[in-house]
Computed example of a mutant assay.
Amino acid sequence: MANNTSFESPDLYGIDDLLSPEHKVVRASMRDFVNREIIPVIEDYAQRAEFPTFMPRKFGEIGAFGPTLPADYGGGELDAISYGLMMQEIERGDSGMRSCVSVQSSLVMWPIFTYGSEEQKRHYLPKLAKGEMMGCFGLTEPNQGSDPAGMQTRFVEKRDHFVLNGSKLWITNGPIADLAVVWAKNEQGRIRGLLVERGMEGFSTPEIHHKWSLRASSTGELVFQEVRVPKENLLPGSDGLRSPLACLDQARYGIAWGAVGAAMDCYASALRYALERRQFGRPIASFQLVQKKLAEMATEITKAQLLCWRLGVLKNEGRATTAQISLAKRNNVEMALNIAREARQIHGAMGITGDYPIMRHLMNLESVITYEGTHDIHLLILGSDITGIPAFK
């Protein structure tokens, strides 16, 4: 069995020297949490395609939700690198668990904090921070994925409320969410954010089944049929497509770090297996081709660690750009997916079993490379930044 509760992250370039004592404490705390609460149970939940419903409260207790937000709203007032290290450790456990936290923190709490009224912030954020309330982010639609500007979900103004119609698809946390941050067009065709609560008449969240990826994550649709949304549930600071896209930058930053965690777990499992597995009278780690695979894994992880650290510094300084975040998300997820595939090779046939985390990470990363901007879309974001010529249209 491969579940490792004594994990030490590879550090070939002394990257720990770049971290503050607080960063290391945050990482150690989350590492212990993942080893204790996620790793022992996640394989069973993934095999059963079931979300561990007890986990949000545990995430809330350890401060994983909204850790960069002010303490007045339930946040931990941590910096961007601390947040990144938390995402790295959680995704070392499972991409679906990191997705749950990313959505709650970056796509629900962050837009309420950034675009919400003071009353909205006081009402929702402390509950979300504790995991007493779960949220989801409604942007992607059945016919509008990479082109969110073409969304068809709309709302019209009535006397004391709005009437919302439309649907959203591939929504992480949707089936378990108490609150949805929904992006829709008003009568003028302007995209605005609405806070839609479970229990509002005409609002339903059917679950998506038969997934081969993110099996321990709760994924669904959001369906709005003449939903009456109080006017006070409009996010007053949201205006245009730039608002949800700014939320995506927050989430993509966390994904860039998280993917490194998945890669680290695959690498650690492959190294351990290669040292233990004997063929032709010696450990397979002694063979050149296996050492080549391990050396290349360690090299790519090191490069990704440095990329994350530098991006975290830029984010702390308020200088991280959309293109920089896209570069890191795209590079690091592809890196992690390649490492998962190579790790599966080292494990041989055992790599496809649930005794090892490889196949679960591999399947999860097939979703991570697509969501929050597909692999190709991130190329076009970079291409537009480099040339000044958008290639989306």
Rank of each mutant, 00 (worst) to 15 (best):
M1G: 14
T5D: 00
T5M: 08
S6H: 10
S6D: 05
S9I: 12
P10C: 07
D16R: 14
D17G: 01
L19T: 01
P21G: 07
H23E: 10
K24Q: 13
V25W: 02
F33Q: 11
E37K: 10
E37C: 06
Y45K: 08
A46P: 01
T53V: 13
R57S: 13
E61V: 11
I62C: 06
G63H: 05
P67A: 02
Y73S: 04
L78H: 11
Q88H: 12
E91G: 03
R92F: 11
D94I: 03
S95M: 14
G96V: 10
W110P: 00
T114W: 00
S117N: 07
K127W: 06
K130N: 11
T140Y: 04
T140Q: 08
D147F: 13
M151H: 05
L169F: 13
W170V: 12
T172W: 00
G174E: 09
D178H: 15
L179R: 03
K185N: 08
L194E: 07
L195F: 08
V196A: 05
M200Y: 09
E207G: 02
E207W: 00
I208N: 05
H210P: 00
A216W: 02
S218Y: 07
Q225S: 11
P230K: 08
K231R: 14
L234W: 08
S238D: 05
G254Q: 15
I255S: 01
A262V: 07
E276K: 07
I284W: 01
V290K: 03
L294N: 02
Q305M: 07
Q305E: 13
L306P: 00
C308K: 01
G312M: 02
V313G: 00
E317H: 04
T321K: 11
T322C: 08
Q324R: 09
L327T: 03
A328E: 06
V333M: 08
V333A: 05
I339C: 02
A340D: 08
G348N: 07
T353I: 11
M359K: 10
M359A: 11
R360M: 12
L362D: 05
I369V: 15
E372R: 02
D376H: 11
L379S: 10
G383Y: 08
D385A: 15
P390V: 05
P390R: 02
